[in-house]
Design a protein around this nucleic acid. Structure first.
Length: 544
RNA sequence: GGCCGGUUCGUCUAUCGGCUAGGACAGCCCCCUUUCACGGGGCAAAGACGGGUUCGAUUCCCGUACCGGCUACCA
């Protein structure tokens, strides 16, 4: 059935050609129709292809996210392929780190070096043998050539000619299989002379494709240089590797950052030469995430400079031993981090901003992804986190807060109390780490008491009030916030002191500082003994 | 410089030719709250510019400006 439709479409296209419609029309119609043909037949397979050279940038995580959302929405596979073709940039631990970040975000790959799959290996360094034959096939077909120029020679050229590019305009003056005799090339090759394989960009050819986000994008091949496909060390460059592996791994849709747009014509040509355009994945070039101030791509340095994380998790550079704080360690919830990233360049068309991952899977659509880059707004990121802390059920926060308190030397034994504490403090926590300040005093008498907030206005009358309060609290049968407040106000009235004069002292006695939830709610959770004891303690401090 | 892409409040964005241009973050003010928050209400704040097309352009087209990306045997 599908085959039949396909054949009819081809006939239609041929008729269009007979009608002498413009070439652009033909190309566009072909792209569109072949896209639909593939959509109906091919399983959705997407890939995130990071280069393990350091911390995982938030832009990278967003690319992962969009890949993931698209795959899951279409019952497809999400693959992680490690692009480690540059051996000079190998960084120990970077790969493991990437997977830890993905795990934290809850974006689990279906296939990867860690998760397995039937299209492995998933590290390009382990697929080295694959690439040379494709590069040589291109040479044989006349679409590529050997180049023997040394690094020094190239550097000299660049010095000599401003904006030098190895291209159809300059290749005739270089040392390559197009300028050298066949015998000379043969000799050089036999002598294992270091060489690369470069694509031979055709002259004045119109190259275009339909980007899922930007629509039709076109280039003229004369403007594109002869990119290296296979390096002297036998490793492929990104250009060759991405095409070969996307083909071998049956990738149906390829998402990547906008910075790749200029090299798209190289990839398209490679697809055309090697595997056929009809098998090429659909491209989507994602908008960039920009610096909040000034301009340009957001970088790790901007985070350092402006005081916010850029990496998903803490990253320690193995060379300098320097650690860069990540969103996780800063106190972000993965739900909030993912939600925030999703909204940086996408929306569902309504005013809704808070989305759990599952809902993103359902609602995500590429045609609602923005074309323009977005400046990163840390304030908004914090807002997302705050919203998620408030939204998440207490139970989901409990173990994390317990961990935080434990790190601060507080072992929580009363789970029920912790639950109550989280419930009444979470609205004032922007970061998970804020729970340390907001919750600690419930379980441990405050080490620092802001006595100066009380002392200036302290007097004997107040002293008597609190003494009486202690007496009353000791005797009370009901230890509920409402009752405690009632008793408090009654005693205040009898002593003719405004409750307002006494609330802050009580807060300081129980909390240590001017923060926290309602003071009687705090007392309720602290319990009779602890509340009375803390009041007595501060009272004794005030006597001196 | 060349090529490619982009351009709505300070920021993220809505609008798929009818706009008194909506929402959110941040800012400011008020209410609630005898802490800090949460919450509620309000204020201020935008279509880069110039041409077309159209009864009507933020929306479509073309220029210009500006911003960004790329221009490595890095990804």
């Amino acid at each position: 059935m599908k085959q039949l439709v396909k054949e009819r479409i081809i006939i239609f296209i041929q008729q269009c050609c007979v009608l002498k419609l413009s070439e652009d029309f033909y190309i566009h119609a072909y792209n569109t129709i072949s896209y639909f043909c593939r959509m109906s037949t091919k399983k959705v397979r997407v890939r995130f292809a990071p280069s393990p050279t350091g911390g995982l940038h938030l832009g990278g995580v967003r690319t992962v996210l969009y890949n993931y959302l698209f795959a899951k929405q279409n019952n497809g596979d999400f693959i992680v392929r490690i692009e480690d073709t540059d051996q000079t940039r190998f960084v120990a631990g970077a790969e493991e780190y990437i997977f830890k970040c993905l795990e934290w975000c809850g974006l689990t790959p279906d296939e990867s070096p860690l998760h397995g799959g039937s299209y492995g290996p998933y590290r390009q360094s382990e697929r080295k043998e694959n690439y040379r034959k494709y590069a040589e096939e291109l040479v044989e077909k006349g679409f590529a050539y050997y180049a023997f120029d040394t690094a020094e020679e190239l550097e000299a050229k660049r010095k000599e000619i401003a904006n030098f590019q190895y291209s159809q305009h300059t290749r005739s003056s270089m040392k390559n299989s197009l300028t050298l005799s066949a015998a000379a090339v043969e000799t050089l090759l036999n002598n294992h002379t270091p060489h690369v394989i470069r694509i031979k960009m055709p002259e004045n050819e119109h190259i275009s494709f339909t980007d899922m986000i930007r629509g039709e994008v076109s280039f003229n091949s004369s403007q594109v240089d002869d990119k290296v496909l296979l390096k002297a060390d036998g490793m492929p460059t990104y250009h060759l590797a991405v095409v070969v592996d996307d083909h071998l791994m049956q990738i149906s849709h390829a998402f990547r950052g906008e910075e790749w747009l200029p090299s798209a014509p190289v990839h398209i040509l490679l697809w055309q030469y090697l595997f056929g355009l009809e098998n090429m994945p659909q491209w989507a070039h994602l908008p960039l995430i920009l610096k909040p101030d000034g301009n340009g791509k957001l970088s790790k340095r901007d985070g350092d400079r402006l005081g916010f994380p850029v990496f998903a998790m803490d990253w320690t550079d193995p060379k300098t031993n320097e650690t860069t704080t990540g969103f996780k360690e800063k106190g972000f919830l993965p739900e909030a981090f993912v939600n925030m990233l999703a909204m940086l360049g996408w929306n569902d068309g309504t005013d809704k901003e808070i989305f759990p991952l599952q809902e993103l899977v359902e609602k995500f659509s590429l045609d609602r992804v923005h074309k323009g880059g977005a400046k990163f707004d840390y304030e908004k990121a914090k807002w997302f986190n705050h919203e998620w802390i408030k939204k998440l059920p207490t139970a989901n926060l409990q173990w994390q807060v317990a961990g935080l308190l434990k790190a601060g030397g507080i072992q929580v034994s009363d789970e029920h109390a912790l639950e109550k504490v989280i419930a009444i403090t979470k609205e004032r926590c922007t970061f998970l780490n804020d729970f340390t300040e907001q919750a600690s005093f419930f379980f441990k008498r405050p080490a620092i008491i802001d006595i100066d907030a009380v002392r200036p206005k302290w007097n004997e009358q107040k002293n008597l009030f609190f003494t009486e309060l202690i007496r009353t609290y000791r005797l009370t049968q009901f230890w509920q916030a409402a009752d405690l407040e009632k008793d408090f106000k009654e005693i205040a009235a009898v002593n003719t002191i405004k409750p307002g004069e006494l609330m802050l002292p009580l807060r300081i006695m129980l909390v240590g500082g001017k923060f926290g939830p309602g003071v009687f709610e705090i007392a309720e959770i602290l319990g009779k003994e602890e509340t009375v004891s803390r009041i007595e303690h501060v009272l004794s401090l005030l006597e001196h």
